[in-house]
Nucleic acid binder design. Structure first.
Lengths: 63, 63
DNA sequence: TGTCTATGTAAAGCTTACTTTACTTTATGG
DNA sequence: CCATAAAGTAAAGTAAGCTTTACATAGACA
């Protein structure tokens, strides 16, 4: 899956750590999702979408 | 997470096995998602949404 | 009755998501 | 130069998603 998380986070001026704190996951999980090493779980994808006030489909695209 | 998969599948007249075949997962996975034993992965949630021609948010809701 | 289909669930095993710890690199500011 | 913050990654462990096999139950139908 492709995603625009890094851009969304950058637009907010947040570090991976700060985003991890908001999402209640580790900064390594944020990094892994941004760098495409793995996809978030569905509950985490929902949390991300809500945080950035958009839909899951806005952020994540099937490759 | 709550979901309306069972209703959507019923509307199509499909068995859990038939849906599993379309999604390329086992019928037990379909059953587990419908009965709320676990959530699908994000890629599988995308497949489900596309199959029923709607968004992930249409089908899955945070509890 | 017996059989077939659909559903629910459990156990064991594998893969993927996620955590903690830790090391490295790059950039920035003193 | 040194210190700090941010980012990337790796290893080891836990948790969750998914598979296969298997057994049980309920309904439809000959």
């Amino acid at each position: 899956m492709d995603n625009t998380l890094k851009t969304l986070r950058g637009d907010k001026g947040w570090s991976q750590q700060a985003l991890g704190d908001l999402l209640e996951v580790s900064r390594q999980s944020v990094n892994a999702i941004e760098t495409g090493r793995y996809d978030p779980s569905l509950p985490l994808a929902f949390k991300i979408a809500r945080l950035f006030d958009c839909t899951i489909e806005d952020i994540f695209k099937e490759t």
